[in-house]
Write a protein that binds this DNA or RNA. Structure first.
Lengths: 340, 340
DNA sequence: TTGTATGCGTTATCAT
DNA sequence: ATGATAACGCATACAA
């Protein structure tokens, strides 16, 4: 059933039927009711392909997720997207997922911009000095970045958490507890968020006159296995750490395994602080949370990012939007004073 | 730049330019080169909204992910979709993600079918006697299910792993090792896959004349926390299990935590077998795998499901496709003979 | 080998 | 308050 058929059935013009369904004010209320009834009776819905051509809007947002060589899908993306999806469905948008291979990146973005299957995109996992940002500014496609570049941060729209502050505060707490050998297990330091976190860690050490030790810093995809390997390695070091600062819950699961394997007890023998993205499959809850953590819901971030983007699309003239989320430090069972 | 402008630039008709770009054989090779050069020079790409209306195909596949009340995004979906995405990009398709609230399910599927923004869908997480299957058959929208209904399995297309067989074999191994008190920590038994796994477990017990004990069976979302809670509870039972059978790696991380908290050692004191979906963030590898496991790559399943669906779309007359994946049992460090 | 004319199913403009 | 007609940007049947 299409608009033409429906209008013939009703003895009205396509125009009137279309207007009735789209709630144009000028249409007679009785007519509107009659049209809507017939539409739902015949299960009519406007063809999206035609609507999109006619209006020039795709009513679709693209999420571009970089897939690196290891082709790993980070659970954090899923959660962020689940949040964004709520905003889209409220406002009649659909979500297109694009898993871009890093090597063909520029052409992928150019294609997205010119083919017109989306009205805007959310950019995930920005790198240090990410070339995508200037590219997207050139292309003129509305976008919001989950994260930031190092500079020029008010010239485009982004949402981010305060990575430096969170890791500064976490490191400070460990130092206050007497720890001086603190091992950082960080995300991939090609990515901007990881660099900011490292800076927070290093700044806190410096403020407390503790010299940083490169042997106690790891960087990589935050998988369980990588967390395990890094922590196991660190614990074998002649100057083994008494505390770990881990950039994700999933990575911390590997750290926890390494600690147990070394015959140590988390919280008493060894302290651990994580950053907790509040993933639904990895709740850090309970009477006392398992891990002391800086927390920030990545699902909320996704929803807010989506709303920002839709606002920008609705009002293309407006200035870029920026939002910096807090990540408060919450105490759990995994931290304690250093053992003498 | 659109087709009209490009064709004027070239002094050709839109038709010829269109044919040249779409590799129609009749167009002069020299003309084709000239057209393609101009197209890439001007960064021209056909407008997807127009192409879709003209061809009647969306070149897009929908993935419908049920979000239940807890609104949880399962990492397994992400991995499956990452696999599917590879097939789509090879064949020029895009991926639309639809996170459907369970309460409005029927209307969501009707809308997907009638609005025409996708050419087919992949259905995730089929339930027991899932009403979506007959609905989709009525609607006539091509679909592939990841999993199966209980019956009529050759009347629609699906890809699934042999859940019953996998869990039968795993249970059998535990029994061979002398375990009789085996605790099942299963997925949500509203879902079909979980029911099949339970059947494998129960069948093996029955074949070995071991009586099943409802106190040793848990069912729910396979989060770390739920795995922990279930295992902790089981270990406090007066007839505590000597082995766990866990339906996912993530759930098993919680089980592992519970075992450690109880002061037990996995592998020697307590055996654990998991089903391993081979998620990238949760590799069960190493010289000796951490967990003894039945394994089946859900990413591969996603890729194969996508290929099946595209084949069905290309040839609508063909009979439904079915594919049953094996999940071989591989030995790891988490199993051993029962302690006397 | 190229061009003309029509159609895809809507929305939007301009009349009435 | 309703209708006729054009426009969106392509693909394709038919003509040459």
């Amino acid at each position: 059933m299409n608009l033409k058929q429906l209008s013939i059935q009703l003895g009205l013009s396509q125009t009137t039927v279309s207007r009735a369904l789209n709630n144009y004010p000028e249409v007679n209320e009785h007519t509107r009711q009659r049209v809507k009834l017939a539409a739902s009776k015949h299960n009519y819905r406007p063809n999206a392909r035609a609507t999109r051509l006619a209006t020039g809007r795709a009513m679709t947002i693209g999420h571009v997720i970089p897939m690196n060589s290891s082709e790993v899908f980070n659970p954090i993306f899923g959660e962020f997207i689940a949040g964004a999806s709520q905003a889209y469905s409220r406002r009649g948008y659909e979500l297109l997922l694009n898993m871009a291979k890093e090597d063909a990146e520029e052409s992928i973005y150019r294609e997205i911009a010119s083919k017109g299957s989306v009205d805007g995109i959310i950019v995930h996992a920005p790198r240090v000095n990410d070339s995508r940002i200037t590219l997207l500014q050139e292309l003129g496609l509305p976008f919001v970045i989950h994260g930031r570049d190092s500079s020029n941060s008010s010239e485009y729209s982004w949402i981010d958490m305060n990575n430096r502050q969170a890791f500064y505060q976490a490191t400070k707490l460990l130092i206050d507890l007497g720890h001086t050998k603190i091992c950082l297990i960080n995300g991939d330091e090609k990515l901007n968020f990881a660099v900011r976190r490292k800076k927070g860690y290093l700044d806190a050490l410096e403020d407390e006159k503790i010299s940083a030790n490169a042997d106690l810093m790891y960087s990589g995809d935050l998988t369980e296995a990588n967390g395990y390997t890094a922590a196991t390695h660190a614990l074998k070091h002649r100057n083994a750490p008494t505390a770990f600062l881990v950039a994700s819950y999933v990575g911390a699961l590997g750290v926890r395994r390494a600690i147990h394997n070394a015959g140590l007890e988390m919280g008493s023998d060894i302290s651990v602080i994580i950053h907790d993205d509040e993933l639904a499959y990895f709740h850090n809850d309970g009477d006392i949370a398992q891990f002391t953590a800086t927390r920030s819901s990545v699902k909320d971030a996704g929803e807010r990012a989506a709303m920002m983007l839709l606002d920008i699309i609705d009002d293309p003239g407006k200035a870029p939007l920026n939002e910096l989320l807090k990540a408060p430090l919450t105490l759990g069972a995994s931290t304690g004073p250093v053992k003498k």
